[in-house]
Amino acid sequence: MDRIKIIDVHEDVLANNDRAAEALRARLHDAGTLLINLMSSPGSGKTTLLNATLDAVADRLSIGIMEADVDSDVDAYSVQRHGARAVQLHTGGMCHLDAAMCEQGLRELGTQGLDAVFIENVGNLICPAEFDTGAARKVMILSTPEGHDKPLKYPLMFEVSDVVIVSKMDVAEYFDFSLEELERNVRMRNPQVRIMPLSAKTGEGMQQWIDWLLGEVAAWKA
């Protein structure tokens, strides 16, 4: 029998993923395509926000969307009707996307001519926060029915996000939801974060989000 070797590795398990994500980010920077990782719980309004965003920037930006779901393709059909180039990624039971899955999806989508691509990540506030997908910006959505205490329960998601969108503001009064308390809970973890309360349904607060998106796309290409 061969001699048994003991090897000191001391390598972070996600180091491969982080290197792949970094390389993907650099390639997308050269191509001038801004990749945005959109994360939230199921039912927080990711698809509704994307549809309203596509309608608002239709004549200014070309947008691609990668829908990540454990199964089904209902979301991809929905955004295609609003004019986006879309692909559906099935994670096969996994709770998140990683850089390799994201890269495969981008190849299928084709980024040629696209100003921005949104990853509609698996609905989940825990796992998607742990994996670098290669996205340049991370945006999370918290809907008002979910409550203002979520940053206390899922701190990592709020720590890694560049923007927290507070969705469904039009129905906030029916729930025990305080925007002030939410802001306090979020800023304790992430003082630099942008917080944008809005309703994709009524259009309230949407301008701030659209302006942010247009500004980030312009800055990424500069």
Partner: peptide
């Protein structure tokens, strides 16, 4: 917050 492979034994 570490998830790190420390050592590997094999042949």
């Amino acid at each position: 917050n570490e998830i790190e492979i420390a050592t590997v034994e094999g042949y």
